[in-house]
Amino acid sequence: CASPPPAPSSGWAGKLGYQVEASAERRAQAGSALFELQGGPERGQIQLNSPLGTALAHAAWGTDGVWLDDGQGRRRFAHLDELAQALGDALQGPALPLTALFDWLEGRPQAEHPHQAGPDGFEQLGWKVQRQEQTLTLSRPAQGGQGAIRLRILLTPAP
């Protein structure tokens, strides 16, 4: 199993809502989930629950790998970006920009990648990032056959 998760104090929790516009390949999608996220890109874990309490996925990553349990058994991934796609599938929604999310939740761009500051946030990795009080809004225009995405994260005090 992945190394023990970091202390729960370093974490975020709340509700994640997504909307994906229709595209040539797929109808519009929308949904939400409750989440608990801890740690950082190097070591951490995320729990996704449906709004009705059923567990959708639990993932942990650390020195010995990236692991996901989504009810279809435990699977290992090469890196966080692959996990991000599997988490999106568990949600029946889009891939979550997990690696950058830790910085974006703090309202700052990721240091490793270029970004462009804007009047109400910044743009990075193809996403527009806006953090206002307890809400983080991430929007990405349509690309690669997928409709435009809007992810909204409503933060509640970590458990």
Partner: peptide, 9 residues
């Protein structure tokens, strides 16, 4: 209910 991840509700 015990769901697919062993969570008990």
């Amino acid at each position: 209910i015990v769901d697919g991840l062993g969570q008990r509700s």
